[in-house]
Design a protein around this nucleic acid. Structure first.
Lengths: 340, 340
DNA sequence: AATTGGCACTCCGGGCGACAGAGTGCCAGT
DNA sequence: ACTGGCACTCTGTCGCCCGGAGTGCCAATT
């Protein structure tokens, strides 16, 4: 049995009402609040079908209906049009992001903005090193046997690591090293660097081979091995809005999941095209987030994507509004990055 | 009326039992669990006095007694001996901190370690710039009119900022600039730099004055004005341990406070001598943290202090254990920093 | 065939009273 | 100064009842 238009309309009405009121919605209330043009009895029949198909369910006999994950999914895919942002929101975004002074600042402002606009938990991934290119490598002598390696990426990220050298090294050699690594690696995508780093060592005259090898090790660790994804979180207090019903009583598992960077990266760090992705309840495969939904998207200058951002909230969330906000913020951030 | 030894002993017993069981403690249970050598009736008399003096209170008539903030205060100040760490804990600390590879890593590991050991919310402040010295300033040309300023502090902190130049600048001039700023500022405490930066501009030949002025502006912003305190948080999920009674029902205000870096800095960033500081309930003047206690201390290489760290939990907390852990972790981190 | 009104049924949530248990305050006795 | 005893108070819980909301089903209508 396929779902005719009216049944879909009923589902939409249920989702909208439930998101707003947070209470199971019954047939009578539905026809009162929406112009469905039919009687409660008819709506009940439709509801029975929707329930059979798994889009809604009853918390208990003789309660109203509540959307299931599947119901939200259908709603998001077919029933919701993207809600245009209000001018006030646009202005807020611009005002918030203007004046950011470096990458940290951009990420910081962005994550707070997102949390504030969506009134949910916001996550912003720093531009991924895997998607960056080397802009410059700097070697700063700290002591005679120690160098500070500073890598500046085209995305604005700056990583630094200490290099312990096997022995003292004269200042001129440092300059030489710096020139060499920059010639070889400058402009290269980080993901392409490993063989280049190896060749740096191979091409090195034997007397300096040792030093270069040390440097190479740290270079590799910094550039690729150590999965240097970073991210920033804001708005955890928003988890406590809404009733205890969201998140089935305890925030515990959600807070725990939010502490695991790996988990968060999985959630927002999917490199897809510029599509916004919505994961509803069970769809994100983390047990702790069974009662949460995640709306995420990629961002970056122009059409390229350098990182992800998104928000996390109860499955009972205003999807159209959230999706619109997440998209808009991502676009603004992308523009901001393009300016640099 | 002053408190004799037995009354203090009763208070200690109440605190210890309440912390453990989380339930108001009555006179009968007290004499059973502790060897007080007197009868419940006597204890009741003592309790009446303690209540009159404001150290304990009854949630309602005919319930047991619960310590007040004042009671905890007395307990911390006079009744608790520092609990020595278990060997297992010492080992955990060492194992956790060994292998840290840069400052970020140290802070990251530390905050997670603290959260795990105390089972509370942990906060670690990055070494304060105000307490650092300049180790090196690096100028990296990004484009003809843009420089990346990288400041490396002796505490391991690395800050970077983009400098927009008034016009194109030849590579040699960059080298010259770098030499100048390093000569002038290298080794100086950041807090001493403002007049030096000013003199850099003043001493500059007029044709380069403009460029130097730009650089100086950013330098000042980076080094001092922009209060570049950073900190890291972990263990928020621990707030949900214990009953709903902690934090009087809602985590909301606590989570909100934890999002405000300014508030956290006030809590853990007091530069006192190497004393551990305990703020109980109302004592930390943030309304949102009325039902929370904070144990904090400073850390740094050797005897100097470069930053603060601490934990936040319900007033009903194991003070002796927490204090011991916070102190120990701070000392280990200090040692770690001293090695660099 | 789809829709509707009617009706019996189910279940939740709140209010009420009773009751056991824990804890106290007080007093008189040692 | 301490103790045992006793009456009192308050909480938390259990069972109970009841009103309300919402459903499912069925027969009637279009």
């Amino acid at each position: 049995m396929s779902l005719d238009d009216r049944k879909l309309e009923v589902l939409r009405a249920i989702v909208e009402d439930y998101v707003e009121t947070q209470e199971p919605v019954g047939s009578k209330a539905l026809v009162e609040r929406h112009q469905l043009g039919v009687s409660p009895a008819t709506v009940r029949n439709d509801m029975a079908v929707l329930e059979e198909e798994g889009y809604i369910r009853q918390p208990h006999t003789s309660a109203g209906r509540v959307p299931t994950d599947l119901g939200y999914r259908l709603f998001v895919d077919r029933l919701s049009k993207v809600k245009p942002l209000s001018p006030a929101e646009r202005r807020a975004i611009e005002r918030f992001l203007v004046g950011a002074v470096d990458l940290d600042d951009v990420v910081h402002r962005t994550v707070r903005l997102l949390a504030q606009l969506t009134r949910q938990v916001a996550v912003v991934q720093y531009p991924s090193l895997a998607r960056s290119s080397v802009r410059h490598l700097e070697l700063v002598p700290i002591s005679t046997t120690r160098l500070m390696l500073v890598m500046i990426a085209d995305t604005g990220r700056v990583e630094q690591r200490l290099v312990e050298l096997p022995g003292p090294i004269p200042a001129d050699d440092v300059l030489d090293l710096r020139r060499k690594v920059n010639e070889k690696l400058g402009g290269q995508r980080l993901s392409d660097t490993p063989p280049l780093v190896q060749s740096l060592v191979d091409d090195c005259p034997p007397d300096r081979r040792n030093t270069m090898a040390c440097l190479a090790t740290v270079l590799l660790e910094t550039l690729v091995e150590r999965n240097e994804e970073r991210l920033m979180l804001a708005g955890t207090a928003n988890l406590t809005r809404g009733s205890v019903l969201d998140f089935q009583g305890t925030l515990r598992p959600v807070l725990e999941a939010l502490e695991e960077e790996v988990i968060l990266l999985k959630l927002i760090g999917d490199l897809e095209p510029s599509k916004t992705r919505v994961r509803i309840g069970d769809e994100n495969e983390i047990d702790n987030l069974r009662s949460a939904s995640v709306v995420s998207t990629g961002y970056g200058p122009g059409a390229t994507i350098v990182g992800g951002l998104g928000v996390l909230g109860p499955t009972r969330m205003d999807y159209p509004g959230t999706i619109a906000t997440v998209r808009a913020v991502a676009r603004y951030v992308g523009d901001l990055l393009a300016q640099n």
